[in-house]
Design a protein around this nucleic acid. Structure first.
Length: 774
DNA sequence: CAGTGAGCGAGCTTCCGCTTGACTT
């Protein structure tokens, strides 16, 4: 039996490290946290100094049993979890869960997975840092208290099953407020004048563009300006050259990797992390959840060698980057290829593309600056007060630009500045064409998943391991939706001066095809309004940054963790109680007007099942009528007419095959009903205008689709069917589903086989924990 | 992925952070 058991957090890491250590060492992983608060209750003893009630996480029981057994047999247990707050806590939890003793346990840390770093760590063990553990407890308990007291308040005041938390609620707030800014934004149009010139006395006919520095606010002004320039003369007033430098971006962290993969590969953040995980597990890249931009010396050495080999010595410039991120814990290296000599990997297409991005970014970060020459040419016009300006940029030495240019979030980079022809002050210029094109000021952009992560990181909210999950949580809760909404076309005026003539024309501008953007839902907006009104301090963008300072104090032993929690919890809990008692339902209710038929009030609000329209008052004797909001209607913008339209269902369309066809709106959207069967209506049809003809089409389409999924039917017993579902073939008998064991070929099944399968309890569907009640 | 198809109720829901597979009707 091995004398030494080393425990790390990740199994891939365990495998690598085991290779560095001798036979006397066995390396295993804890798979992250092993203990946590029970999730069915608060699990914080408020009366008893906020003592957290930990348990071994249900899904970690097996791992813990295994580790415990191995620990017992080992002479020394080395706790080698990450050197940050959470890692220290994991070590502490392992110490307790495995029943370790101080004599036989050592705590070691390393920041890079190299043989040197590991052996060095083994030579310098320490004890568990209890202050750091306390800081983690404070973090954990604070999050639990906030989450488990705010969420139930939302269930009572807004809608069941909602959630709130230190991180997710602020993320939602960012999106809601951005949307409000956009709504409040008034786009202003202006005219930008761009002229295209060439040197008059030059054989080389290279043209270049120059912009007039004044923007005109009206069409008339712009037109007058152009008209004045018929027959104008132009000459170069000045030429100014300035050297400039560009430096490469630092190596990837989780957040910057997500941003670049989104910009350059179009990956949503979840996909980036999945693909990176595969690369990590196959040993191609270092750990992908990190906030550090640091590269190990081994990596720098490899970079130097690789750059020299590929581009030459003059391209090498080794840099040590330092992080500027709030609250960064830097337990790992930056994300980089394990071996920089591999420019590509023989993996799936997605993995290859992401790997290549990581390789380029890493290499570029250790390459020389690019040397540029920026040229500014000013041009005199015989008619204009100001000078036209042309900007040019020439790359004198490409440096890191040879491999990598960081992407930007700007929607259309209009600063294109290429090469300018050589010229001198006094050179006469001829005008080819001058355009005054209408432009519109742009509202701030909606967040994409990746730009939201960037913002969260700036605010210090969330951690590398939670960015992607948080974004998926707030979508699951239906606080926000990710959508690619088509940008609207718009008419743009353009005035052109060419060959001494001024002409006007109208262009249609198609907005650029947009990436999927994040939009708040009605629920998200209402929940945010509630939280900002009653819990402003927690929704404050600086809340996390402020508590992080206190966690740091705890980690340094300058503050007691339960004291900190006590100071927070007192006022917080009071606020929960008073809000509970004094405030009514918070539904974002709006009175839209009166129903012309009954004279009753019509409202829009968030109901039990989501946004609804309501006719009649809730406290009146007669029950109000309800209808869910549909297709793009929103609480804030719905009109009385639209709301009343929702009550026009179910509507009869006529008869088909001697049965009535009706259209209605149900729980899962609009549907057509015919002969007790339901047929969903897709987005392309509007249920309020659909006619019988179209309904019949929908019915037939569905029937033929159903035909395709039937693998087998039996004349003898029509209740028995073999169907093709999303997980492959399955068996249905009287609406009960059964698994088909692997040894059967679904298309060969006989009726007897089917009965046999249905009698075997092994093939019964597993009970889902959260089954819908009838 | 396919399928689901009610009507303001009983009992359920929920946090953040660390890690990977399990395995579906």
């Amino acid at each position: 039996m091995a004398k030494n058991l080393v425990i790390v957090e990740s199994p891939a890491k365990a495998k690598t490290i085991e290779g560095f250590l001798g036979k006397d060492f066995v390396v295993r992983s804890s798979f992250g946290h092993v203990m946590d608060l029970n999730k069915t209750k608060l699990s914080v003893d408020i009366e008893n100094d906020f003592k957290p009630e930990y348990e071994i996480s249900p899904d970690k029981k097996k791992v813990v049993t295994e580790l415990k057994k191995m620990a017992k047999e080992a002479e020394t247990v080395w706790l080698a979890t990450d050197e940050d707050r959470e890692g220290e806590a994991i070590s502490w939890h392992l110490f307790n869960a495995l029943g370790l003793t101080e004599d036989s346990t050592k705590r070691i840390v390393f920041h890079e997975i190299t043989k040197n770093a590991i052996t060095n760590a083994i030579d310098n063990p320490r004890g568990i840092d209890t202050n750091l553990v306390s800081a983690q407890q404070a973090r954990r308990v604070l999050d639990r208290l906030v989450g488990y007291e705010l969420s139930p308040l939302l269930w009572k005041k807004v809608k069941p099953a909602l959630s709130a938390g230190r991180v997710q609620s602020v993320a939602v707030r960012l999106i809601v407020e951005r949307e409000e800014e956009i709504k409040a934004f008034e786009s202003v149009s202006y005219f930008r004048v761009v002229a295209e010139f060439q040197l008059t006395e030059r054989e080389n006919q290279q043209t270049f563009q120059a912009e007039y520095p004044v923007r005109f606010s009206t069409f008339e002004e712009a037109k007058v300006f152009l008209e004045n320039h018929t027959g104008a003369e132009f000459k170069v007033a000045s030429v100014e050259k300035k050297p400039a430098k560009k430096s490469p971006a630092p190596p990837f962290t989780t957040s910057t990797l997500q941003q670049e993969a989104s910009r350059k590969l179009g990956f949503p953040v979840g996909k980036t992390m999945r693909v990176a995980q595969q690369l990590y597990e196959s040993g191609k890249i270092t750990y992908m959840r990190t906030d550090s931009v640091n590269l190990s010396n081994t990596a720098l050495g490899m970079a130097k060698q690789e750059i020299s080999k590929l581009f030459g010595k003059e391209y090498i410039r080794i840099r040590k980057f330092t992080t500027k991120t709030k609250g960064a814990q830097e337990a790992h290296e930056a994300i980089r290829p394990t071996y920089l000599s591999n420019q590509s990997v023989d993996r799936s297409d997605d993995e290859q593309r992401l790997y290549s991005l990581i390789w380029k970014r890493t290499i570029a970060s250790q390459m020389s600056e690019a040397q540029l020459e920026k040229t500014t040419v000013k041009i005199d016009s015989s008619f204009a007060k100001e000078q036209f300006v042309a900007n040019g940029e020439v790359v004198k030495f490409d440096g890191f630009l040879k491999v990598y240019i960081e992407g930007t979030d700007e929607e259309n980079g209009n600063g294109k500045s290429g090469m300018l022809p050589a010229m001198e002050s006094g050179d006469p210029l001829s005008l080819n064409v001058m355009n005054a094109r209408q432009r519109f000021t742009k509202h701030p952009p909606r967040y994409t998943e990746a730009s939201l992560v960037k913002k969260m990181e700036e605010l210090g909210i969330g951690r590398p391991s939670t960015y992607a999950p948080t974004i998926s949580t707030i979508q699951k809760r239906e606080y926000i939706v990710k959508e690619r909404r088509p940008s609207q076309k718009r008419n743009v005026q353009m005035i052109t001066l060419q060959d001494g003539n001024v002409q006007e024309k109208m262009l249609t501008e198609n907005g650029a095809t947009e990436k999927a953007k994040l939009y708040p839902t009605d629920i998200g907006t209402v929940v945010n309004r509630f939280l900002v009104e009653y819990f402003k301090n927690i929704l404050d963008y600086n809340f996390t940054a402020n508590v992080e300072k206190e966690f740091d104090d705890i980690a340094e032993g300058k503050k007691q963790w339960n004291q900190m929690i006590k100071e927070f919890y007192g006022p917080f809990h009071d606020k929960i109680e008073t809000t509970q008692e004094t405030s009514g339902k918070f539904t974002g209710e709006r009175l839209l007007g009166q129903d012309p038929e009954t004279g009753k009030n019509v409202y829009s609000k968030v109901g039990r099942f989501g946004p609804i329209a309501q006719i009649g008052d809730t406290d009146s004797e007669e029950k109000p009528r309800f209808a869910g909001l549909r297709n793009g209607l929103s609480l804030e913008t719905i009109t009385l007419k639209e709301a009343l339209g929702l009550f026009d269902f179910p509507r009869s369309l006529g008869e088909y095959e001697n049965e009535e066809v009706t259209v209605a709106i149900g729980r899962f959207g609009p549907y057509v009903k015919h002969n007790k069967k339901f047929y969903s209506i897709g987005k392309e049809d509007d249920p309020s205008v659909i006619n019988l003809e179209r309904a019949i089409e929908i019915i037939s389409e569905k029937r033929s689709a159903d035909q395709k999924k039937i693998i087998k039917e039996f004349k003898e017993d029509e209740d028995v069917q073999v169907l093709n579902g999303r997980y492959g073939a399955y068996l249905v008998i009287k609406k009960q589903n059964y698994k088909i064991p692997k040894e059967h070929d679904p298309s060969e099944l006989t009726l007897e086989d089917c009965y046999k399968i249905s009698r075997d309890p092994k093939n019964m569907p597993k009970k889902r924990y959260n089954r819908k009640r009838k």
